[in-house]
Write a protein that binds this DNA or RNA. Sequence first.
DNA 1: TGGCTGACTTTCG
DNA 2: ACGAAAGCCAGCC
Length: 108
Amino acid sequence: MNSNFFEDVYEVVKLIPAGRWTSYGAIANYLGTRGSARMVGWAMNSAHGLQDVPAHRVLNRSGILTGKHHFVPPESMQESLENEGLKVINDKIVNGSESYWNPNVELM
DNA sequence: TGGCTGACTTTCG
DNA sequence: ACGAAAGCCAGCC
């Protein structure tokens, strides 16, 4: 496709298994552009219209729902995560270390 | 063409 | 330990 970056981001996000989460930096790093972690979020903004892209599974490196405010409604992000078996308290993933999904490891 | 923006990340103070 | 600033890349005006 034309926008390789966005397409790649979508691909990776779509590959995230339910009950798992990853970080923007991990995806950016997987794409080889660690510096453009913000771009990943931006790509999500465009992917926001694609239901195939579970953007709610993409958090910041701390496992905090940084982009929840971009969801409609924002609470849907946390509910979606909890619906998949993840525990979210105070907009943050609980035991994130165990449920963390690294594309560089899983897709490598 | 040039410059701003951005759902991040890392480092210095 | 907390706060603020810089760095990175790609899309959009």
